[in-house]
Write a protein that binds this DNA or RNA. Sequence first.
DNA 1: CATGAATGAGCTTTCATTCAT
DNA 2: AATGAATGAAAGCTCATTCAT
Lengths: 193, 193, 193, 193
Amino acid sequence: MPTTSGARRAGVQRSRQALLDAAAAAFVENGVQAPVRDIAGRAGVGVGTVYRHFPTRADLVGAVYRHQVQECTALAAALRRQPLPPGEALDRWIAAFVDFLTTKHGLGEALLSDDPGLANLHSLVLDELVPACASLLDAAQRVGEVDARLDALTLLRAVGNLSLPGPGYGRAEAGQMVARLLAGCRTAAPRVD
Amino acid sequence: MPTTSGARRAGVQRSRQALLDAAAAAFVENGVQAPVRDIAGRAGVGVGTVYRHFPTRADLVGAVYRHQVQECTALAAALRRQPLPPGEALDRWIAAFVDFLTTKHGLGEALLSDDPGLANLHSLVLDELVPACASLLDAAQRVGEVDARLDALTLLRAVGNLSLPGPGYGRAEAGQMVARLLAGCRTAAPRVD
Amino acid sequence: MPTTSGARRAGVQRSRQALLDAAAAAFVENGVQAPVRDIAGRAGVGVGTVYRHFPTRADLVGAVYRHQVQECTALAAALRRQPLPPGEALDRWIAAFVDFLTTKHGLGEALLSDDPGLANLHSLVLDELVPACASLLDAAQRVGEVDARLDALTLLRAVGNLSLPGPGYGRAEAGQMVARLLAGCRTAAPRVD
Amino acid sequence: MPTTSGARRAGVQRSRQALLDAAAAAFVENGVQAPVRDIAGRAGVGVGTVYRHFPTRADLVGAVYRHQVQECTALAAALRRQPLPPGEALDRWIAAFVDFLTTKHGLGEALLSDDPGLANLHSLVLDELVPACASLLDAAQRVGEVDARLDALTLLRAVGNLSLPGPGYGRAEAGQMVARLLAGCRTAAPRVD
DNA sequence: CATGAATGAGCTTTCATTCAT
DNA sequence: AATGAATGAAAGCTCATTCAT
């Protein structure tokens, strides 16, 4: 019996990717609690296949958002390398983050959930996004553009929360509120005790 | 005429109150989707009793939060009657609202949920809280303390979102972020386009 | 403390009668399985009162139909006393019975049910209706108008069954089919082995 | 293409059949309202399996009786092809029908029920049994052996009703009464107005 | 006696998860 | 590896029945 053939491996990868796409779509529509059957169905595979690739729902959620989280991280690095005022760089990154959250809104919900099964997602954020945000935030704080008493985790969480959609409160409103929040974080802003 | 005795009525009220307390606790711990059995258990009654008092989950959720929502409304009225600068009155009211949300945090989640069964809760907010907030907001806008382009529903929603707790993000952080958001709503604040 | 007053007794009787009427109505509409609450509600009393008067559903069912069953018995006696050909008397009695069943159709269902809780109803039929029917049947058989191999219980049951209504099968059809059955019971009828 | 294996399919069929058998038995003992758990238990499967195969109770009831109803239809066709006097063919078919009903007596009850969930069963009867009966009935009426004023639906319903068993009224009695009913449907029978 | 609140068993239904094929 | 049938634990909801007032 030959070792796993390339064709086989390719098929496996295809299944995996189909699953990730299906899950991403399902999460957007029904939240991260979307029924496993639904995800399997969208991907055109059996439920067993879902469990083979992602033993727990958390694994699936993590995999779905890892790539996109990493894009955010990469964007932060890119912005740092550009000749921008640090405050401006932070603003742009936050704006991109909001865009991201309000577009794939499953993530916002997932980040919010205190489901212990999503711990790995939270770690992902802590390990990737918080440092990315912190690097931009620190720079802005060092040049005095942003209040030094602000920490990246709090800011990230606040922005994430503001990005949760609701009736009469969509992308536009979230963007505006986040902009106001950032305005309130400027050093020159009215006192916040 | 079959008269329901006072003692009977008292017992009924006690049950009802026990249920409301139990539900409030369950909502805080498990969200508004807490199993009816769980709520019944906490209240020391059978499931049937829950359904007798609150035929639908929405009735229960509504009852749990109605009183507290009305307190917020009343506070707004009280603040309007005080000789305060309008911006200050708004600040205080919002601070109280945040306190309220972060203390009984089930409500934040409930307000967020797009569960159609919670429509009455949303109406409650729209009918009570939005006008209450609007009255204070309008006053502050009229004297030029707050950006005229802000509407009560958006503000309320944003504050509600910012009040959702999470790991490493509690009352203190929510309060701080809300304060910054309000700072960003001042007329003198850095431009928000 | 005086013994039960006349007024009290009268009230009790009123409750009891209201219950019987309510139950009869409920049985017609929803069958003998009608919810106890429904019956209590129609009678304008509490469920406890139902249980006080009729500890089991069978007691209630029995009470509801006892009077009407006795009317049938009485009719048989009356017909026996009239100068009618025995076969004719039997026909008339059966026709009246069908009328009765198709009008208060809850009874048909009740008679059919093999619910052991309705045993007393079955006894009632056995004790009252079967003898009543038998007296008329015997007479007709003695004068040779009806096949001697027919027994009252079987005939009664058959007539009861034929009187069960259904879609496209009502009083008219039941009456016609019972008439044909009786025709098939005549001595002169085509052989039935 | 993911091919469901033959062995798999065979297992599924076995489950399905076990379920049909279990349901048939449960229906005979407890009527078509038999608890799903009971049926699942008899079949040695979990409740979920029942719902997988038969999403609604009506589906199950329909499946249980469909085969047997079709047997009746087939018998009618067979009898039509035989060189029998039309009245005789009708008699035989009716006798077989009675046998069928009194043997699998759950059906009788099911046919009687006005539960709207059983609409498909009623349609089945209307679509299959009524035409089958009508074909034999028409033939008998055309040659003048049976009263022309009889329609198939009424006859079928009457026979069905007569076949409902009860205490002291079983197969034998039902058969005898049906025979008398048919006798009463003969053209030569005593007048039925 | 009457009341109706409370109880809790029992039913339906949904899904996450396992596992034989 | 992939499949999807089977499982069974929840959970919602309904009612018959009891019992304190």
